[in-house]
Amino acid sequence: MLNFVFVLIFLALILSGFRFFKGPSSSDRVVALDTLTTIISVLLVTSSLFFDNYILLDISFVFAALSFTSVIVISRYLEGGNS
């Protein structure tokens, strides 16, 4: 059952990775990065169910927090670039 979920999640990762590498403007890349990190958080949570391992939940939380911060940092940088 979870294998199917992993296939779907990997497909989603590949698709948003495509936008991440192609994306004409840097904002497109940041959007793709945001999506990628959310998908990876979900992947970590489902992996914790798959491996029956509690600790991956902690890692997922920290990963989500850090990726949110990185998105805010990059967008602050893009915004300041034109001022």
């Binding site: 979920v5 779907l8 793709a32 489902t46 169910l49």
Partner: peptide, 15 residues
């Protein structure tokens, strides 16, 4: 879980 991963795929497709 399966519905959620379908929505994730949908989001990636949308991007």
């Amino acid at each position: 879980i399966i519905l959620g991963s379908l929505f994730l795929l949908l989001g990636a497709l949308g991007i």
